[in-house]
Design a protein around this nucleic acid. Sequence first.
DNA 1: GTCTATACACTGATAGAC
DNA 2: GTCTATCAGTGTATAGAC
Lengths: 208, 208
Amino acid sequence: MIEQAKDTETKILDAAKEVFQQKGLTGARMQEIADKAGINKALLHYYYRTKDKLFEKVFELAFSLFIPRVKEMMMSEKSVFEKIEFIVDNYINLLHKHPYIPGFIINELNRNPQMLVQLFEKNVQFKEINLFEKFDNQLQDEVNKGIIRSVDSRNLMTNVIGLCIFPIVARPIIQGVMFNNDKKAYEAFLAQRKQFVVDFIINSIKVK
Amino acid sequence: MIEQAKDTETKILDAAKEVFQQKGLTGARMQEIADKAGINKALLHYYYRTKDKLFEKVFELAFSLFIPRVKEMMMSEKSVFEKIEFIVDNYINLLHKHPYIPGFIINELNRNPQMLVQLFEKNVQFKEINLFEKFDNQLQDEVNKGIIRSVDSRNLMTNVIGLCIFPIVARPIIQGVMFNNDKKAYEAFLAQRKQFVVDFIINSIKVK
DNA sequence: GTCTATACACTGATAGAC
DNA sequence: GTCTATCAGTGTATAGAC
């Protein structure tokens, strides 16, 4: 039945998401995904013909969860400072819910950059070459008003996103080297970091 | 002969480095490493008994190239501003020479965090829990002198390293989304970024 | 739609000659 | 030290019964 099918499809996707994100495309095993979904391998291939196709689906879902957020936030009607606070806040919350996705996306995209091109071609939503035009204008506007110092928009956005994501994707090494592998200490570190990052960025660009 | 052995061993390591860093532990094939080294699979196993052992060696070499640098830089006799400029400068140069290593380390460490523990146990050089004590004192000292505002050392170091590494490990996605996949444009972006990052950090922490 | 059984290719690893 | 040949195990994918 359709009901049953829908349910099985969801169970497969959930299981596949978990396994692929943890072990990557090449490290994941169809058997493990089947086990985790409570079905057998044959049924996996019935729903998604190949491992690659199943992976593509999982990757696309992960991608669409993270990337469009940036666009939304940049397009809102807020001041630069408010936008930065809003983005950092939302992105760190999102990262807290899905800590494995950024590393997953970054890794698989490095292994196969072509995926991004295919994604852009299939999904217009992701292709936003003029995403920075409005933000550029806003920055220049606030520079003219003497609120912030002159700053390149792409460098700024890279910093905002990078400062949020880096401590998550590089968690094992930072936690190991800086916090002697103390998990609780690192969680405390992450908890206070949201405010630190906002202050760090705003302090850097604001005119005093 | 020993001479020949040394040479073969080097060729294997070079080939293994290339393949492992590009495809990861699970994606790499012993056959491809053998081909790239100009030998056959059997000889691979003669020098390094298993795939895992060969991988460990490659990982350790990559790790030792990147991590101890931070320690060196932090231990030098420079002002905070000089240290930051020095670290960013050196790290970005290093990244330019070895752009695939950080992603490699980050990814494999996420897949198997236990590796870091083993590395620490085997190699005292990496275990530096008091690495921040001296840096903490220096920061506090310059705060007292009114040079910089009060800032947490681990957050600051995370930002310094993260701002250098993030545009490299996330290159495909940033280049794709922000630069319409224009490779030349991204190289130009990276070239000017060194100065931007230094200014960004120092602007944030200095007292004006 | 879901299962069992199996085909088929590939991979890591070893044996044994030179 | 280096090779050829080969094994045993594993992985994706499919055939066919229900």
